[in-house]
Design a protein around this nucleic acid. Structure first.
Lengths: 354, 354
DNA sequence: ATGACGCTTGAAATCGTTTTTATTCGCCGC
DNA sequence: GCGGCGAATAAAAACGATTTCAAGCGTCAT
C-alpha cells in the first residue's frame, strides 16, 4: 500500500549536518566531549528532519531494551468469573508511573506463580526487558528469590516473607484486616468470618494476622474455624458466606478480601433470608469503588489500585536508575469508607485508628 | 551481583559446529538450500548449548519486532469509578490467541481516541510493533482510516461505519439491544430506557438501531426521550436510572449497556423505593458474569470477552501472515441468560431469536 | 581435458546505534 | 622550529542476526 519515505537514521543526520555519526551520537546523548555549539547545530537539525533514534539499533548496541515487563495474572477462577481486581487499572497506573521515560510496557500473561517463574526466567535470560513488575506475591516466593539472586531490577506489588531486600509496594493488609475486624467486634459481633484469598499468598497471612490481633486485643477467642481461603470470585464469596452462615454457631460478621467476594457474600446471605446490617454485616477491602452501589452499600477500606500501579512504575524507574532497593519500599493503608451499618444491635462507638 | 555466563550467540554455535554463521542462520530458519543432515547437526547443537536467537539482532536486521501493540483504553470515568469492563480478560485472551507464535504483547495506555491515534502513529512510524489491536471504535474512526491507509496490519474490537476493509471482531450489539428491548416489550413494558455508552462509539449507534427496530417491529412509538449516553460507570447508571424513573411518564424497563451501569440502575431504582421485577425491570449486556449475584439477579446477554480477545490475537496472527482482511471479520451474538423477572405484571411468552 | 552446472557452504555486507581508539589542528614552551 | 599537548571530531569496531553473492567441488556433457 502507501509507502512512506524511509525514516531518517543517524547517517541521514550525519549527511545533513556534515558531522560524523559518532559526533551526532555523542551530541544527542549530551556527552561533555562535544562543544555546545555543535550540540546546538545537531539538535536543531535533528528536530528539523524529525530524527528519532531507532530503538532497535540502540537496543542491539547497548543491550538495553527500554521495555518493562509486567506479569499479569490471569483470573485464577474458572469460567470467567469476576474476581473484582481491575488489573487494567494497575497497568494504567504503571504506564502513568513510566510516563516521561523512554520505557514501554510489555505484558506477559501468567496463570500462576510457577508459570510466573518460568516467564521471569525467560525475561531475564532472554533480555526481553530491563525490569520486571509483578504481583500475587506468596509467603515463600520463588520469583522474588530468583530475581534477587539474578540481580535483575524488579518491583513487586506485595511482600514475601523471606528475608530479602527488594523494591516493593504493598497495601497494609494486616492493618486493614485488623481495623475491619475490630470494627465488627465493636459493633457487637463475636462470630466474625474472614473470607480470604489463596492461603499461599503473603497478604492472606497478613490478613489472618490482623484478624487475629483484633480478637486478642479485645480479649476474645479467635474464631479460627471461620477463616476460609479461596479464589477472589463472587462465586467463592457466596459459597463461603452460605457455608459460614449455616454453621450451628453461625458467623454474623464477614470480612471480605475484596468487593467481588463481598458481592457474593451479600447474595448468599440474602438467599438465606438474612437482612444485612441487622442479622449480618459485611465489610470489605475495596479497590474499584463498586461497593457503594451494593444492597446495602458496604463499609469498605478503600485504596485505588491505580495509585499502587503508579508507585510501581515510579519505583522501577528509580531502581533502573540504580537506586538502592531498600529505599524503594512502601506500605499504604487504605482509607475507611463508612457506609451502611456494619454493626449488630448493640452498637458501640468505634475507636479510631492504630 | 551474580553474573551469568554470556548467552550463546550464533557465533558460539558456529564455533561449536564448525559451520559458518550464514549456514547456521539458514539451517535454523529451515531454508531449503541447506541439507537435512546439516540442519540436524545444527539443531542438535543448538539444543545442546541452549541457543535461542536474539530478538534484538533479528529485529535490527529484518525490521520486524515480533511485538504486537495493544491500545488499552484507560477508564474514561473520573475518580477510578468501576466501568465493568475487565480489560485484563481481553488482554489475557489476546495473549492466548498469540500463544505458540513468537509474538509478544506490548500495552499502550490511551486516554481517548485522539490519543489512540497519536499512539498508533508512533507505533507505525517508530516501527514499535508489527501489528496493532485496539477497541472503542467510533462510528467515524480516524485510527481505522489511518491504519488502512498506512497498510499497517491491525485488528479491532468493534466496527466503524466507514466503508473500509479491515480485520475486526465484534459483538452483535444491534441484535442484543433488539433482543433485550423486545423481551421487555413482550413483558409488557412500553416506557423502556436505553442506558447507552458514549454516542460517538459505533456500538452505541448499533444499540440504538436495535432498540429502535424492536419498537417499530412491535408497531410502537420509539421512546427517543429515554435514550441516554454516558460513560460505563456505575455512577452514570445510577444517575441515568434516577433521572429516567423520575420523569412524569417514567421508564419502567431499562436496557443497560453493561453490568456496572446495571448495578447503578438497580441502586438508583432501589433508592426510589421501586421493587425490581415488579415496578421496574433491568436487563443488561454482560461480560463478567457478576449480574447473577445482583439483587435481584439480572437477565443478561452474555459473551465472555476473553473469547473476543482470543479471536483478536488469532486474527492478527493471520493478518500478519498475509491473509486478506476481508476474511478476518467476525460478528458474535451474545447468549441470553434468563434470570430473575424482567417483565411487568402482564407476562407474555417471549418469541425466541431472530 | 575442460567448461558449465548443481549443490552446498562460506565470506562479506548490512541493519542503526554506541563506544573505543585514532586523527587533526592549533598553540605553547623550550 | 619542533615536540608535545589538549580539544574537537572522525574512523572503526562491535552488538547479533539475515541475506546476497561468491566459492568450492563433484558430475556430466562436449
Amino acid at each position: 500500500m502507501a509507502d512512506h519515505p524511509p525514516r531518517p537514521t543517524i547517517k541521514t543526520l550525519s549527511e545533513v549536518t556534515g558531522f560524523s555519526i559518532a559526533t551526532i551520537s555523542k551530541a544527542l546523548n549530551d556527552s561533555p566531549v562535544v562543544t555546545q555549539a555543535t550540540k546546538a547545530v545537531i539538535r536543531q537539525a535533528a528536530g528539523q528532519i524529525g530524527y528519532a533514534a531507532s530503538l532497535r539499533g540502540m537496543s542491539l548496541r547497548t543491550g538495553r531494551t527500554y521495555q518493562v515487563a509486567v506479569l499479569m495474572p490471569v483470573a485464577s477462577a474458572s469460567g470467567f468469573e469476576w474476581e473484582g481486581v481491575d488489573y487494567a487499572q494497575i497497568l494504567s497506573g504503571i504506564a502513568a508511573g513510566l510516563e516521561g521515560s523512554p520505557y514501554r510496557m510489555s505484558v506477559h500473561v501468567v496463570r500462576d506463580a510457577e508459570e510466573g517463574l518460568v516467564t521471569a526466567r525467560q525475561v531475564v535470560e532472554g533480555h526481553l526487558a530491563d525490569g520486571l513488575i509483578f504481583s500475587g506475591i506468596q509467603a515463600q516466593d520463588a520469583r522474588v528469590a530468583y530475581l534477587c539472586d539474578a540481580g535483575f531490577p524488579f518491583v513487586t506489588l506485595g511482600r514475601c516473607r523471606q528475608d530479602l531486600t527488594y523494591a516493593h509496594v504493598d497495601v497494609d493488609s494486616e492493618w486493614a484486616a485488623w481495623a475491619a475486624t475490630s470494627r465488627l467486634i465493636a459493633g457487637g459481633h463475636r462470630r466474625i468470618a474472614l473470607i480470604n484469598p489463596d492461603p499461599r499468598l503473603s497478604y492472606a497471612l497478613d490478613r489472618i494476622d490482623g484478624f487475629t490481633r483484633a480478637f486478642t486485643q479485645a480479649n476474645l477467642p479467635v474464631p479460627h474455624d471461620l477463616i476460609l481461603g479461596g479464589d477472589l470470585s463472587t462465586r467463592f464469596g457466596k459459597e463461603a458466606a452460605l457455608a459460614l452462615a449455616r454453621l450451628p454457631d453461625p458467623a454474623t460478621g464477614f470480612v471480605c478480601v475484596n468487593e467481588s467476594t463481598a458481592l457474593g457474600a451479600l447474595a448468599g446471605l440474602r438467599d438465606l433470608g438474612l437482612t444485612i446490617g441487622r442479622e449480618a454485616s459485611v465489610i470489605a477491602y475495596d479497590d474499584i469503588n463498586a461497593s457503594a452501589y451494593f444492597a446495602p452499600p458496604l463499609t469498605t477500606f478503600y485504596l485505588p489500585i491505580e495509585d499502587l500501579g503508579r508507585q510501581l512504575g515510579g519505583f522501577l524507574l528509580r531502581r533502573l536508575a540504580g537506586e538502592d532497593p531498600a529505599t524503594l519500599q512502601q506500605l499504604t493503608r487504605p482509607d475507611l469508607v463508612a457506609r451502611q451499618s456494619d454493626r449488630l444491635e448493640r452498637v458501640l462507638p468505634w475507636e479510631g485508628n492504630t
